[in-house]
């Protein structure tokens, strides 16, 4: 068991935002070297809610991001737990499984499917929450995040979320490879 005590350089999540609120984000609950190898920039920080620690660690593995916004994490966690009271325990169980068996995230779904694991729906639920901001399905689906959902964040250097103005009239004619044309 080891914990990182020094704070390594962080990947830039939102290049247009400074100071980046996500730099205040945290990763918690990593017990295994293995997980740290998956998330090389991970560092430990105080956990606002200890019960969330496995969820945060599992999220970091599944979404492939070392730092996750704690306020958003709390909203997603609360929504997932409200949606399924068994969620916190299941998240811990899945994290343990990933750690103990050193399952690559790209192999995880197939592995769970092959084993018909009762946890097989969990990765999609967690990643859908983070990337689409959606928790639940069908009539029970609800939106917890939109412009702060990770799928908006990871393209924020090029695109704005739908309904947000891209920029001044005609700013979209430029080749985006030439650099950001909105701010």
């Amino acid at each position: 068991m080891e914990r990182r005590h020094s704070r390594p350089p962080l990947p830039t999540l939102r290049p247009d935002a400074s100071p980046d609120p996500l730099r205040r984000a945290l990763l918690v609950g990593f017990g295994a070297t293995y997980v740290l190898s998956l998330v090389p920039f991970a560092w430990a920080q105080a956990v606002p809610d200890a019960a969330m620690a496995p969820f945060m660690a599992l999220s970091a593995v599944l979404v492939g991001r070392p730092s996750l916004d704690p306020a958003q994490a709390k909203r997603l966690y609360d929504a997932l737990a409200a949606n399924d009271p068994g969620f916190p325990a299941a998240a811990k169980q899945l994290l343990d499984t990933v750690e103990q068996r050193k399952i690559d995230p790209m192999q995880l779904q197939q592995t769970l499917n092959d084993e018909n694991s009762p946890l097989k729906d969990l990765p999609r639920q967690v990643v859908t929450a983070w990337f689409l901001g959606i928790v639940g399905s069908g009539k029970n689906a609800r939106c917890v995040a939109f412009e702060t959902a990770l799928n908006a964040q990871v393209v924020a250097d090029i695109l704005k979320p739908p309904t947000y103005a891209y920029g001044a009239y005609g700013s979209w004619t430029r080749n985006p490879a030439e650099g950001p044309d909105h701010g």
Partner: peptide, 12 residues
């Protein structure tokens, strides 16, 4: 991508 089980850094 989520439906296809693409997770981790590969997803982004």
């Amino acid at each position: 991508l989520i439906a296809a089980g693409v997770f981790g850094p590969e997803l982004e």
